[in-house]
Each structure stands twice: as structure tokens, then as C-alpha cells.
């Protein structure tokens, strides 16, 4: 067990890990290796898939009717006043505090292993006032990726949509041109990512390939607020 890499041993080790039979130290060591060794990750995934079949004959039971409300309260705080709060993006700030308190309890858990990384993603909705354009964005610090999904609207024919970061009183900085496809990933440089919490995101109408000047040249079509911390 002490740092061997015998492939046969790894198969067993991955199974022990999936079953939760390793000591906390062994489990941590396994996770560290797993993050660097795709083959080990695959062994673990194989066990997780196979063992999940043990739940096939676990009877489904409807949770109590108030469970969705309990979850919503835990995540978003009590009684969300949707329109105002959501538009201001404030719903995301409260859960941060709630989660922080829950987390101290969670961390004992062996399933951070499953979750890999513990910085919650920053998520924002960038929408036109009439919702004619709506883009959801989520930034994950673990891989520096800003995942975007265009929910409604599109660039005008022969035009492009460009995403901008506006931090405080600063000038807009381009985060890139949105892909033509509905879903895409924009890679965010670390020095820009630092400015994301609490910033405003905006989408402007630009020529193909994006603004030639480095600043928005067309109309601002949609804006949204990034929460000051992830949830």
C-alpha cells in the first residue's frame, strides 16, 4: 500500500477507495494520485459505476413535500423576492454564508473526492431587459473556464456577440467573443478572473471576430452581475 504502483494493486485500491474502506490518510493519498493519474481515475470510475448498481434494488421513496422549500432556503435564503433580488444577483450572496456554515460539517466527508476541488463556481445571468438575449455564465476557478450557454437570442446576421468584464469604475475588458454555438467555454486569464467577483458582465453587438478597438463599439445588449462569492 505504501506508494506501490502495481496495476493489480491499484485496481483493488480503487475499489477500497470507492467503498470508503481506506483510512483518511490513505484516501487523501489516493486522491492526490488520482488527480495526476487518469488511469487511476478510470479505475475509480469503473468501481463507482459498478457499485452504484447495488442501489438498484433500493426502494424509491418520495421525500416530504416541504423538502424543495427546505433546500431552497438552505441555498438561497428564506422567501426569495424573485424579481428584485434575482435581478440584482443578491440571491447568490446569502447562500454563500449559509454554505460556509454547512461546509465545516461537510468537509469530514470522503466525497470531496467525488467533487474534486472546493471553490464554488461563480455564476451569473446576463440578460437583456426584455429577455431577448439571455446568457448563463459559470466560472470555475479549478480550471479557469467560463462556461457559457446562450439561453435566448443570438447575434444579428453577420455580427458577433462579445462578452465584457466591468470591474468597479474600470473600463470594460473583453472576455472574448461568444461562440456561435449555444454552449461554449471561454478561458479566463487569472489576472482577469480575480476581478470577476462582484463585477458586471455585459454583452455587446460587434463585427465578426469582435471589437477591433479593444473597447465595445456596438450596442450593449445585455448585462448581469457576478456575485461576490460562489455558491
Amino acid at each position: 500500500m505504501s506508494g506501490e504502483t502495481d496495476p493489480e494493486d491499484d485496481r483493488v485500491l480503487a475499489g477500497e477507495y470507492a467503498l470508503g474502506l481506506l483510512s483518511p490518510e490513505e484516501a487523501r493519498a489516493f486522491e492526490e494520485r488520482m488527480s495526476a493519474e487518469p488511469a487511476l481515475r478510470e479505475l475509480y470510475a469503473g468501481w463507482a459505476e459498478d457499485l452504484a448498481a447495488l442501489t438498484d434494488d433500493v426502494e424509491e421513496v418520495a421525500p416530504p413535500a416541504d423538502m424543495p422549500a427546505r433546500i431552497e432556503t438552505a441555498l438561497f435564503g428564506a422567501a426569495p423576492r424573485r424579481s428584485l433580488w434575482q435581478r440584482l444577483g443578491l440571491t447568490w450572496i446569502i447562500p454563500g454564508a449559509v454554505l460556509a456554515s454547512l461546509l465545516t460539517f461537510f468537509v469530514v466527508s470522503n466525497d470531496l473526492l467525488v467533487l474534486d476541488g472546493d471553490v464554488p463556481p461563480l455564476r451569473a445571468e446576463i440578460a437583456a431587459q426584455d429577455d431577448s438575449l439571455r446568457v448563463l455564465a459559470a466560472y470555475d476557478a479549478d480550471d479557469g473556464a467560463l462556461r457559457v450557454t446562450r439561453d435566448a437570442g443570438a447575434a444579428a446576421p453577420g455580427r458577433a456577440l462579445e462578452l465584457w468584464l466591468i470591474a468597479g469604475q474600470g473600463a470594460p475588458v473583453s472576455l472574448g467573443v461568444l461562440p456561435e454555438a449555444r454552449d461554449g467555454v471561454l478561458q479566463v486569464a487569472p489576472e482577469l478572473a480575480e476581478k470577476l467577483p462582484g463585477a458586471t458582465l455585459a454583452i455587446s453587438d460587434e463585427p465578426p471576430g469582435g471589437s477591433p478597438t479593444g473597447a465595445p463599439t456596438g450596442d450593449v445588449l445585455a448585462t448581469g452581475q457576478v456575485p461576490s462569492q460562489g455558491a
Binding site: R41, E42, A45, A74, L99
Partner: peptide
């Protein structure tokens, strides 16, 4: 309740381990 809080927070990461 706690499980769904985790799901909300980590939904983007399920692919990391190939499950």
C-alpha cells in the same frame, strides 16, 4: 437536503472523475 445543496454547488464537476 444537504445532498441537494452539494448537487447544486458541484453539478459542473461531475465529469471530472468520469462518472
Amino acid at each position: 437536503q444537504e445532498v441537494f445543496v452539494k448537487i447544486w454547488r458541484n453539478a459542473g464537476r461531475y465529469r471530472v472523475n468520469g462518472l
